[in-house]
């Protein structure tokens, strides 16, 4: 398989077949927390895509050039990755506020929330540390693959979050039985939405 096709499949696999929100349940807090409002969801998706890609790149370098050469990766990767991601987010927040105020206005307030978002940590860990990736590859990703994977995951995140928040805006007006009001009906809706993703399970042997 040539590299271009492989990377395209990796992207689709990460975005649709293994959709991070609806098939793997990673990062559900923003999924239920901000999906009340479509505009907010757009900002959140942007911020997550940005942070996820940067964080994967940063942890990739940290793992391959610091943790592995020192031989401490196996037991230091959790604190190391979370600290790398946290300081990256902090740095990006300051950078954006100073130099790209337009972008900061549209996604700045979500940045601190994302530090402890499981989706970012999970994607970075899976792409960087061997042995976690769902597709059970015996090796860790190269830099290019890791970035494509992170982009694919964030595309899937955005797709699921935006469809769900559009659905939820209509749900506000729908007559819902009293006991299902609020989050209960949101979970059922998410369940039905994720039913659509069952159809894609197993595509490309992923």
């Amino acid at each position: 398989m040539n590299t271009g096709v492989y990377l395209a499949l990796l992207f689709v696999g990460a975005a649709l077949v293994n959709n991070i929100l609806l098939t793997r349940f990673i990062g559900l807090c923003p999924f239920f927390g901000v999906s009340n409002d479509f505009q907010t969801s757009v900002g959140m998706s942007l911020a997550v895509a940005f942070v996820m890609t940067m964080a994967t790149a940063a942890t990739w370098f940290f793992w391959n050039f610091v943790l592995v050469p020192l031989g401490v990766g196996e037991f230091l990767y959790i604190p190391a990755f979370i600290l790398v991601i946290a300081s990256l987010v902090q740095f990006m927040e300051m950078f954006l506020r100073r130099y790209v105020p337009g972008l900061y206005r549209s996604m700045g307030i979500y940045l601190p929330l994302i530090t402890t978002n499981c989706a970012v940590f999970a994607t970075a860990t899976e792409a960087v540390k061997p042995g976690f990736f769902k597709m059970n590859l015996p090796y860790a990703f190269g830099f290019g693959e890791a970035i494509v994977y992170a982009l694919g995951v964030s595309a899937g995140f955005a797709l699921a979050l935006l469809t769900f928040s559009a659905l939820r805006e209509r749900l506000e007006l729908a007559p819902v039985p009293r006991v299902f009001k609020g989050n209960a009906i949101a979970f059922i809706t998410a369940g039905l939405l994720s039913l659509g993703y069952v159809g894609m399970a197993g595509w490309f042997g992923l």
Binding site: T23, R24, I188, A190, G191, L192, S194, L195, Y197, V198
Partner: peptide
């Protein structure tokens, strides 16, 4: 046991 079951 599939993922929609979790939400439902």
């Amino acid at each position: 046991v599939l993922f929609p079951g979790g939400f439902l």
